[in-house]
Design a protein around this nucleic acid. Structure first.
Length: 485
RNA sequence: CGCGGGGUAGAGGAACGGUACCUCGGAAGCCUCAUAAGCUUCAGGAGUGGGUUCGACUCCCGCCCCCGCAACCA
């Protein structure tokens, strides 16, 4: 293990809005975050804080709860459980699972509001707009088709005119652009360019509250009984309330960081680019808090041919079924290797099986079997501690959060071992030149041990199996990944 | 002129201003430690028209086509 330097590492996912069951997109983000978190914890030896949770306020949830004749709290409780089980099935090992209905989060959100207010960035204004309940968003005329929301053509557009609080996003154009001068602030670069041009165009102030009489399912605005916070404003604050902010300043600074040393890594989908890299950052500035360090933007999981997954097309895949049928590590492998880390990736069962057979069954699994067999039969073993041969390429890719490149490197090592066996033929040399054969088998065991180490973040269960087999010189009795028909 | 992404062997995907790589599939061979797995070799390739360049798949411009932005929101 590398010297740990007792560094602290913070990463958070976005919080899924709990109006639908967890899907492949959630799984992708959770697993990507988990891989990065485990890398820092299990490979680099750092102390980590890995945050995830559920976003539970807002009109859509309120309405859905009413439809189901449920108390909103009972409704969101159910969903929070579902998402926790989901994490468990994916082996996502979070430090904290925050829910935006947690009492501490509510207090933190109110304190955050006060700070923005005291800083003069929150102001009451007349809010008049066209509003689509389905999207839970304001709509501009250009977004409407024949006066209807194209997403929800059956729903009537509502006219809203009420007093709301606004956040003066427009105050932060220059400061945000300054933030974007750091070429690593948003990864990948194409997304940084996208947000830069959005902010350059001039951010518009946005409404951050709703009339409580119309929509009570939100956090009360401090000092105004008639208003609750708009769900976006409240939800983003979870990233710091989860650390015990504002009371626990020490923990906050250790993990979230300081102005001089920002430390928070956020991961989000491309649909969340604005909220995470612009709105939330402006909110932090307003509250006088440090910005995030990196915003990692991933793509979407598409069905075959780059098409969106949709019920209509019938190409929706349930991640839980994939886990049940092929195992958690197989799905985690697929997310890391077959999905471009920062772009969209296709998922079809056929492609999944193909990759499984080629890389998990024939590649990794078969290699472990053949090497362990030779080792055990010839009584070759190695002494290993918590150490492995550090590969700079691997470290570099992981440092760039390029998961795919890192896994590609590991499979390069698998390929190398297969070649090595073919060239040195230790299985044959044991008869003619046993010393050389034993040396080569030893080399293979060391390589296997390194492979097991590097797999820790990606495939924790498989990694453990490999390391155990190598350490104890055990044959693989049941294949790691049985070949699929 | 809305914005954005993309067109690479039969299929799906990488990389790169100078031998275009990988996986699956096809053909032949080798090996026998292994999960009918492994290794080698062969066949087959850059939408289109220009430009820059000693040299372009790579950079620039035009055109054609596909896709996303319009969701089960990541």
């Amino acid at each position: 293990m590398k010297p740990s330097k007792s560094r602290k590492f913070y990463i958070t996912t976005t919080l899924p809005y709990v109006n639908a069951a967890p899907h492949l997109g959630h799984a992708l983000e959770f697993v990507q975050a988990d891989i990065i978190a485990r890398y820092h914890r299990d490979v680099l030896g750092e102390e980590i804080f890995f945050n995830t949770g559920t976003d539970e306020h807002g009109l859509k949830i309120y309405q859905k709860a009413l439809e189901n004749k449920k108390d909103p709290q009972a409704y969101v409780d159910e969903y929070a459980e579902k998402f926790k089980e989901f994490c468990k099935a994916l082996n996502v090992d979070y430090t904290a699972f925050i829910r935006t209905t947690d009492s501490h989060h509510i207090k933190a959100a109110q304190e955050f509001w006060r700070r923005c207010y005291d800083n003069g960035d929150i102001e009451k204004r007349l809010y008049r707009t066209k509003y689509c309940v389905g999207c839970e968003l304001e709509k501009t005329d250009s977004e409407l088709v024949n006066g209807k929301c194209p997403l929800h053509p059956v729903l009537e557009i509502e006219m809203h005119e009420e007093e709301n609080y606004f956040f003066k996003f427009s105050n932060y154009r220059e400061k945000l652009l300054k933030l974007y001068e750091n070429p690593q602030f948003v990864i990948p670069e194409s997304r940084l360019n996208e947000i830069r041009s959005f902010v350059s165009a001039g951010p518009k102030d946005f409404s951050i509250s709703r009339l409580k009489s119309k929509m009570p399912w939100g956090i009360p605005v401090p000092g105004d009984d008639t208003q609750v916070m708009y769900v976006w404003f409240d939800a983003l604050i979870n990233y710091i309330s989860t650390l015990g902010w504002p009371e626990n300043n020490e923990k906050f600074e250790e993990f979230w960081g300081t102005d001089e040393n920002p430390n928070a890594v956020q991961i989000a989908g491309k649909d969340n680019l604005r909220q995470q890299s612009a709105m939330w950052q402006a909110m932090l500035m307003s509250a006088g808090l440090p910005n995030s360090k990196n915003i990692l933007i991933h793509g979407f999981i598409t069905g075959g041919g780059g098409l969106k997954m949709s019920k209509t097309l019938g190409n929706v895949v349930d991640p839980m079924e994939v886990v049940r049928e092929f195992g958690t590590d197989a799905l985690r492998y697929w997310f890391a290797r077959e999905v471009p880390t920062f772009e969209d990736g296709d998922f079809t069962i056929d492609k999944f099986k193909e990759s499984y057979n080629a890389n998990l069954a024939n590649g990794l699994g078969n290699l472990v079997s053949r090497v362990m067999k030779m080792a055990v039969v010839n009584g070759v073993s190695i002494f290993t501690g918590d150490d492995f041969t550090w590969a700079p390429e691997f470290e570099f890719s992981m440092g760039q959060y390029d998961l795919r490149e890192a896994v590609d490197f590991i499979w390069g090592e698998v390929k190398y071992c297969d070649d090595f066996i073919q060239q040195t033929e230790p299985f044959r040399k044991t008869k003619t030149n046993p010393d050389e054969a034993r040396e080569n088998i030893k080399k293979l065991l060391l390589k296997l041990h390194d492979i097991g180490w590097m797999l820790k973040p990606f495939m924790p269960v498989t990694s453990e199996k490999i390391l155990k087999a190598v350490r104890n010189s055990e044959e693989i009795k049941t294949p790691l990944f049985p070949r699929l028909k």
